[in-house]
Design a protein around this nucleic acid. Structure first.
Lengths: 336, 336
DNA sequence: AAACACAACCGAAACGTTTCCGAATCAGAC
DNA sequence: GTCTGATTCGGAAACGTTTCGGTTGTGTTT
């Protein structure tokens, strides 16, 4: 059905090797170039990347394993990443593992079977067990957003500076006189969770405030989780005067909870949220929040991966840390 | 580096053909099965899908070309689609063409080079020109959400019944006594736009109301577009008493505009929106809206594609139409 | 024990490229 | 018109599978 190089060879009278060289930028005589070009047109030749992959031992495919596709933070990273990768002629296979370690592992194996050239992973399993096969197969691995300690030195990573981000937000609150500051974190064993907790603790102790577990909640990074976390914080005998919520969905949930409880922001409670994402940003436009540079995360991820793919000999594993930004809104006020 | 079937053959003393048969579910003697299994373990054999693809002439990869990845409606479709496809051992390569017909065409070619087994497309170019190459290469094409008239019979499709959806929404409004009903549509030359317009017009004439262009706006399916469209509708000397907004982003924009203008819903104006999407739904929880079954769209798309891939001889092109649902909120009231 | 049927096995040729390296061709100078 | 050195060309062997068709092995029947 589809034309092959062999057909081109027959049509032009040239050898296979010459045709191949033509497509790979080798030097071919003008007249032969023309000959090949017209044969390509005539036969509707389309190069077969599969055969090429088999021979060159590279598929020009990058596997991406993420916890959830329907998550604006993630898709906006993927989107800018895919953009760059495709411009460099790399295809991206995205696998959504639904935050399930088992599925995550299967996804990695699935991609390994397909001989992806590299693996980008926003890890669900904090142990990194799912990546062992990839590592031992020599496939470059790049972690995004979440580091895995025991893989340090064996993989690259692109993350944000979670500690400072959190530190900055909390310091802002302490500077305004808040000392009972509620913290809503993600799932307990996630990298970002513990980092953001550290930043919070640092900022508090720095201001001479003794942190108390009472004010810390784990909201699973979901809207529902954020909602419940805030409700529970509001039940404390000594209510927090301020809140720091550490991801976007939970911020949404938190705002909803406050709204339902009739608590005014910032009059009754100061709030700092997380991740201003296109559409949503408009809705709570006056929220003070920590903003992650999703675009840059995607871009840096793509570039770092391309870099790893380039240095085929002796891959150097780098960790790129991007910084966040505190955008001021009107959801925070000074305690009189 | 990586072990091949040849290595397994040497290790077990069995022939290549036998090993292959083992992996493809052929009958192999018990003792030999055990032999192979242990060799697989010992050598860490991973089947090379690339070589297999070359030989079998199928990649088990589906290409998906969409206008925008960071769009919740789209990702939720993709998510459920990818889920099913991967369970059937098909990988999905997603290309975001940023609603640019040129990029869309390039994406299709990109995927064709990679010899995808099938193509799923939420079309940006309403002419369908970008799909010609795929069609003539005999690659099954499946349109989602947007039909392309001149491709009828040559492709399959999964869409919703836009005309009834729109009809239903508008009839609801006319039944409550509204006659000046503003309509906010997407981009003029899109399939869904014209279908939803038709439903609107039908419903109006059915109630003896003469439609007027004055009440129709094109909002480009963006939040900003919806925002502007509503502002402009509010400037009419004879303001509409009700509004039907035909996608999610524009509904968001519309609500924002109303909020900014201090217009109360439904007291001052009745509103029917579109697409309740997880998170956002909570925010405007009392909106009456048309809900598309994104899950089902994804699922039907995947199944239909698998079906097309199955009937390798004589693909029958089907069009699956799913229906929408009107969920009642509190954003609509009867005109006294 | 011979004959048979049937299951399980294997050698070798594909699939469509790339690449090595020896062979052919070329341009220019004498 | 020949020779030289530099270019361009092409034959053939890979890459790791699947599959065709033929061979060997196993177990039953008489």
């Amino acid at each position: 059905m589809a034309a092959t190089m062999k057909d081109l060879s027959r049509e032009t009278g040239l050898g296979l090797a010459t045709i191949s060289k033509y497509f790979n930028g080798g030097t071919v005589r003008k007249k032969n170039q023309a000959l090949i070009e017209s044969a390509v047109k005539k036969l509707h030749y389309i190069p077969n990347e599969v055969a090429r992959s088999l021979k060159t031992r590279q598929t020009r495919v990058i596997g991406v394993v993420i916890p959830e596709l329907s998550n604006a933070f993630i898709t906006s990273i993927i989107s800018s990443m895919e953009d760059i990768l495709r411009k460099h002629d790399y295809a991206v296979i995205v696998c959504d593992c639904r935050s399930d370690p088992k599925q995550e592992k299967e996804a990695v194996e699935f991609l390994l079977h397909r001989r992806v050239d590299g693996l980008i992973n926003m890890a669900t399993d904090p142990s990194g067990a799912h990546l062992r096969a990839a590592l031992s197969a020599g496939v470059p691995v790049l972690l995004v957003d979440r580091l895995i300690d025991r893989l340090r030195g064996k993989v690259s990573a692109v993350v944000i500076d979670n500690i400072s981000a959190s530190h900055q937000a909390v310091r802002k609150l302490t500077e305004l006189g808040h000392s009972r500051i509620g913290l809503v974190l993600g799932s307990p064993n996630l990298y970002t969770t513990s980092q953001r907790l550290t930043g919070y603790l640092n900022a508090l102790t720095e201001s001479g405030i003794t942190p108390s577990d009472e004010y810390i909640r784990y909201g699973d990074y979901t809207m529902e989780g954020g909602y419940q976390a805030v409700l529970s914080l509001l039940c404390l005998k000594e209510r927090p005067t301020a809140l720091f919520v550490t991801n976007f969905e939970m911020t949404l949930g938190a705002m909803l909870a406050l709204q339902h409880k009739g608590i005014r922001v910032p009059d009754d409670l100061s709030v700092i949220g997380f991740d201003k994402i296109e559409l949503f940003g408009e809705i709570f436009s006056d929220l003070t929040l920590i903003r992650q540079p999703q675009q840059s995360i995607g871009k840096e991820t793509a570039l770092l991966m391309l870099d790893m793919l380039g240095n085929h000999d002796g891959i150097s594993h780098r960790i790129v840390t991007l910084s966040t930004e505190l955008t001021e809104g009107k959801s925070v006020r000074a305690l009189k």
